[in-house]
Design a protein around this nucleic acid. Structure first.
Lengths: 237, 237
DNA sequence: CGCAGATTTGAGGGTCCTCAATGTTCGTGG
DNA sequence: CCACGAACATTGAGGACCCTCAAATCTGCG
């Protein structure tokens, strides 16, 4: 992750762009963190340069569980991770999908509210939380928290929309994080998608079929989608 | 807002409790921010002690609009505020209700993603954002952001539940912020509640009638509710 | 090949939305 | 103080959307 400082207009505001490293290649994923100029911004990269441990996991292995200590912070190197909360009745609410370059495990409390599991084979970097919580890295921490806040706000917006719209938003969201924006390689199952969007697997499947029928997407396999008409997808929202 | 430091066990973790000032009386509203001990935590109160301007608004007056500069930060003294985003088609998604003691207007970007409007007669304190973005107040800023993140995450959880459950959660949420937990004085309209919960006003009304019929709540007036059976309300969730 | 798990498709029902009518609250002015 | 109107809230009927249950199809793997 690298920070690019952009001086905006004549004001004292800075825009902060994060460009994340993807596993296959470099792909810009701009996010404005919009901190004030007086903030001394740390380099998030540096956080994981200070002797990180590496950890490798197989699919469905747990990275951390609910209620576990938030002592460690993670950065995904390759693979995909789901972060979720278990609800009563065997239900599950997936809060986020983490892709290569993502930093996760940063939570305000001393214990994790969510757990994290490997979806695919995963390798990640691990650092102690105490490394981040130092004056030199306040800026970086604020940036991470800001991005998270924005992400969760957008997700809350998504959840008050129709099933068709949720799928469209999800596809475009994933599209932004792929090297080839039109070619989606979805590492997660339909159940994962359903639990992320607050729908059932059947509804997810039906909506995908519907989008396919309207020629907005193609489905070479169930985990490979092609967005044939991103413009029309955007209009659904 | 005052910080209470709690040393947890033998570890280096601190728990941070915020107790908010309500308009009628003092009422604790604990929120764990869970920062590491190495964080130097500022007193949020102090932020608004440094020569704040005061502002008074009538119902439905705008405090700040979408796209406006995030130069100012607010603290509600009395009344109630809704923070929302306008969607196409005249729709509205209320993101938060702000009650006395709440700090709001803290957003990551240089422009507001949401707007804020007075629901009732409102008086609030205003400070420049630059006052907060100084090394001495990083801790306070992190605390505010942490609380916001937790709040939005909980709201996202709410939005993937049934209408009955959303109402129950909303009532208990408001209950926690009232002086008399069993007596709810709702400053907002049914439309506000509906837009907050992602429902229609009719559904909100029907669910309240249903809860009334089951003797879980009483309705002296439409804006005064009595929670006769908070335990049963909790079981709905 | 055969099996288990995942995905898709179908039928039916429940929840919530839409539209419409009625009842209530509140502010204004006679 | 009461009458009136406008906005708000409640209730009802009907329908759309999404969920549940069930079956069929596809996929990956031993």
């Amino acid at each position: 992750v690298r920070f690019i400082y952009l001086l905006l207009g004549a004001g004292v505001q800075w825009g902060v762009m994060l460009s994340y490293t993807r596993n296959q290649s470099f792909h810009a994923r701009p996010r404005t963190a919009g901190l004030n100029s007086s903030v001394e911004i740390g380099d998030v990269d540096r956080l994981f340069a200070i002797g990180p441990r590496e950890r490798v996991l197989a699919p469905n292995e747990e990275i951390f569980g609910e209620g576990q200590s938030t002592e460690l912070i993670y950065r995904l190197v390759s693979g995909a991770v789901r972060s979720y909360k278990s609800l009563k009745g065997g239900c599950r609410k997936i809060e986020a999908f983490r892709l290569p370059g993502d930093i996760f495990g940063v939570e305000p409390g001393p214990k994790h509210e969510f757990c994290a599991e490997a979806i695919t084979d995963v390798s990640l970097l691990v650092v102690r939380r105490s490394v981040l919580f130092s004056p030199a890295t306040y800026g970086a921490l604020l940036t991470i928290m800001s991005c998270e806040l924005k992400r969760v706000q957008d997700h809350a917006l998504l959840l008050s929309k129709s099933a068709r719209q949720r799928l469209a938003i999800f596809l475009l969201e994933m599209s932004q994080r792929m090297n080839e924006p039109d070619i989606l390689e979805l590492p997660m199952s339909r159940r994962d998608i359903a639990d992320y969007l607050g729908l059932t697997i059947e509804t997810v499947s039906r909506m995908l079929s519907q989008l396919n029928q309207k020629n907005l997407i193609d489905r070479p396999t169930s985990h490979h989608l092609i967005l044939s008409n991103r413009l029309a997808l955007g209009r659904i929202i």
